[in-house]
Amino acid sequence: MFLWYIYILLLLLNLVFALIRWGKLRTPIKWLFGLLCWVFLIEIFRKLCDEQWKSFGTHLNIPIEMMFQFLYFYYLLNKKKRIFLYGGLTFFFTALFVAWNVDNDFFWQKNFIDGVFMDVCITFWTGLFFYELIQKPIRYNINIDGNFWVNCGNILYYPGTILLFGLNRYLESVNPELWQNLRPLNYFLNLLIYVLYLIAFIMDRNKK
């Protein structure tokens, strides 16, 4: 509970700094601001509604988060790599469709399997960013590139939550208490990613 408030506070801080430094931010980072606005709204929604709607909120959140991430990487990566973005998006929605086809109640159930599909895609896209980064001119300063910090957050959060999201349903059914004990890992990773996003909003400098 306490961690949730810190998490919301961090989200708010991200939004405030993004607005203060809006003029200096690059286009991809501006899309990230959109993502954080959405995450903030869905978190408040999830806090206020009952369990079933909470699950629906999660399943609604993930495809929309995926779309924001797609737009973020669309403006970030080289045009030649957009094929991988379309590929990732196709994989995600196909997997989602298959999951819904297997179980029509999928969107009302408490599970994060769609989170796993998203984690895989974003981890792959983040890898593409780092591949591009090491090829950039040597004079390019990564410290003032907010995207570097954003992707540091991505490379820690998304692969770090794959197993947690993938095995949560099974673990919760066999040992709900243990599952509750593991949840702080998710909160910790959430805090980590938003701290790194905050650094990105503070450090990013658009060189025109």
Binding site: F130, G160, I162, L163, Y170, V174, N175, L178
Partner: peptide, 24 residues
């Protein structure tokens, strides 16, 4: 069984996070 899964989750996540940190 659930303990083993918890260890797998923690261990696996730790490995992924460690790989991420190493990459950075």
């Amino acid at each position: 069984q659930s303990n083993e899964i918890a260890i797998a989750i923690l261990g696996g996540s730790a490995i992924f996070i460690f790989l991420g940190i190493t990459l950075i």
